[in-house]
Design a binder for these strands. Structure first.
Lengths: 71, 71
DNA sequence: TAATGATGTAAAGTATACTTTACAATAGTT
DNA sequence: AACTATTGTAAAGTATACTTTACATCATTA
């Protein structure tokens, strides 16, 4: 249903679970609220580059592995 | 003097010039205004992840090569 | 069946990314 | 000396990231 934006795709849920982390743990590691992680994971909004780098670092990934431009 | 933020470092000027691009050309390729590229290059603010990915793609780099977290 | 952990989502406020317009400064032409 | 290209920067407005609080849902476990 006209879900969310399409400016940015992500593999966050999959990578986060592979790392054995909850949204809350990831949010603590990234220094943001759990609500923010949830919103990013569900495509509600696009994170800042600082947050993308912190998330990727926590997940031992590159930013490009976590987030992709559409098409 | 208390220049700008320190939340994010970048190699934008160097990489942009190595690619033979002006701020204006890079801004066109990334789909933002020249003023935004200038501000990001000078650390005035942190770009969104969408913009970081577009900049990195234009420069044939990874986001991590262009932008780094401090320390 | 109560309690707990994990997630989804809404609302309302604050911070900041990004825009357009405009103008100044410098360097390299012609 | 005038022109052009590039960059820096300011101001003011709009869009959106991110916050806290709160509550609902679902699955698991005591």
């Amino acid at each position: 249903m006209g879900k969310h934006h399409k400016k940015l795709l992500n593999n966050l849920e999959q990578l986060r679970m592979s790392a054995g982390l909850t949204q809350e743990k990831l949010s603590e590691s990234a220094g943001v609220s759990r609500v923010s992680i949830n919103a990013i994971e569900n495509g509600v909004y696009v994170p800042s580059t600082v947050l993308a780098l912190k998330i990727a670092r926590t997940l031992n990934c590159t930013v490009e592995e976590v987030f992709q431009l559409p098409q």
